[in-house]
Design a protein around this nucleic acid. Structure first.
Length: 402
RNA sequence: GGGCGAAUACCAAAGCAGCCAACUGGGCCUGACUGUAAAUCAGGUGGCUACGGCCUACGGGGGUGCAAGUCCCUCUUCGCCCA
């Protein structure tokens, strides 16, 4: 494949959404040289789903791929057993091998939505680490000191706070760096918190007599609520989310985050994004309209554009026109009448009667019959069950009696 | 090997015998406002209930006592310090 050395594209590649690049000049001239570069990304298969926050590196890889460079994925099925500490302030639980296998299957199909998997190299680092001898590991370790490893910010913090740091965690950057020597990477990219690991890769390559890779870390994008995007916070958008769902989540994004999302999670031209920025700054538009464009653009990364369109329409109907969602799950209730709390629990809108009672008392439950909406706030009420009636709990949850 | 300390609900963290289904903050849920938001405000956040209460819960087990997250014993796990 021919390597694209268009300066404009290369500049965008280097600047868009990136945080640190070492060594920037070196990387730029490598990209301009016309030589095919090997771009490494290490993947730690600890969770089954890829969220938007973690997808930014995949978009960046795609940029490299589209210029004709070779993507090399390292599946950290060995290092996952150790557990990288980059994004945790306390020790990550060690994950079982079976679990890793399980996650892995899902992973590739999700990655395939962004990258062209036909033209990619994939390695499992268990291949080499599984066979490595203790002697060799010790030899490598001799080249690093505890002080060096502990410099890393989150180790330092944990050290100072008296939190534990597993000995194995100290080895992690070294192992990740060793991967780079095996696959002879020219560039390694990673999230904003990967800088230390990536730099260790440079050191390792030097030790092995290779030219050190250039490294690029990407800006972090925040979760919906402005905190770091993390599955355990529940503020994530997974790239496998249903389009309608994804649209709704993106619309509830904080306004301040709009531009970052445009930059990092879409590939709309920067000129266009700058226009949006200007409009937002001048308060020329309702930010809502810009968010709609964003939501569509992000969905189009993963789905055909008709689907993004219809997600938008669905959202507008439901939230702007206050119409019912076009698809409501049907449930069957055998009785003719039922106490409202029992009903809510039975059809799955509440997980206990206590919870149902709270929502009812607070006016969150509505019954819709023939287009007439009735708020139910008496928890003792018995509801007559009719086919086709709709029960709504809160703003977002609906069930239809079938 | 020795010493000390900790384990509380989704998370963090109070409580140190009765007023504890457990302060407070975050999260989450509901409502108001709004741009669907964010911010703000109000309410809620174990289960069941004949709405009087009842049951289950403060790492596990055992004990003292009318009464135990709260005291004692023991086990487990974790942290810190000394060697």
């Amino acid at each position: 494949m021919k390597i694209d050395t268009d300066v404009k594209k290369i500049d965008e590649l280097l600047n868009r959404g990136s945080e640190d690049i070492i060594d920037r000049e070196h990387l730029k001239s490598a990209l301009l040289s016309g030589k095919q570069l090997r771009i490494k990304l290490g993947i730690d298969p600890t969770g089954p789903k890829i969220h938007l926050g973690r997808s930014t590196v995949l978009f960046k890889l795609r940029d490299f791929q589209r210029l004709g460079h070779k993507i090399v994925l390292i599946i950290g099925n060995f290092t996952a057993l150790v557990g990288d500490a980059s994004d945790k302030d306390s020790r990550r639980p060690v994950i079982t091998e079976e679990k890793i296998e399980e996650n892995l299957r899902d992973y590739l199909s999700q990655i395939g939505k962004i990258l062209n998997l036909e033209d990619i190299e994939i390695y499992y680092n268990k291949e080499w680490f599984g066979k490595m001898k203790l002697e060799e590991i010790l030899k490598i370790s001799m080249n690093f000191t505890a002080q060096q490893m502990i410099q890393r910010r989150n180790f330092k913090e944990r050290w100072e706070e008296g939190k534990e740091i597993g000995l194995h965690e100290l080895l992690y950057p070294m192992l990740q760096g060793y991967d780079s020597t095996v696959i002879k990477s020219d560039v390694e990219i990673g999230g904003f918190d990967q800088l230390f690991n990536l730099k260790t890769g440079r050191d390792m390559q030097k030790l092995y007599g290779q030219e050190p890779q250039d490294v690029m870390t990407l800006k972090m994008i925040y979760g919906l609520d402005g905190r770091k995007m993390s599955t355990s916070w529940g503020n994530v958008i997974n790239i496998s989310d249903e389009p309608n769902d994804m649209f709704g989540k993106l619309m509830s994004l904080r306004d301040e985050l709009i531009l970052d999302y445009f930059t990092c999670c879409t590939r709309l031209p920067m000129e266009e994004i700058d226009e949006y920025k200007e409009k937002l700054d001048n308060k020329d538009v309702n930010p809502k309209e810009i968010k709609k464009i964003l939501a569509k653009a992000i969905i189009e990364n993963f789905h055909p554009s008709e689907i993004a369109q219809s997600a938008e329409k669905e959202w507008e109907n439901q939230f702007e026109e206050k119409e019912l969602p076009s698809e409501i799950e049907e449930v069957v209730v055998s009785e003719n009448e039922k106490n409202i709390l029992d009903l809510l629990v039975e059809i799955g809108l509440s997980k206990s009667k206590g919870e149902a009672r709270r929502v009812v008392e607070q006016g969150g439950v509505k019954i819709i019959r023939d287009g007439n909406t009735e708020v139910k706030n008496d928890w003792q009420e018995t509801i007559k069950i009719e086919k086709g009636m709709i029960i709504q709990s809160g703003k977002r949850f609906f069930k239809r009696i079938g």
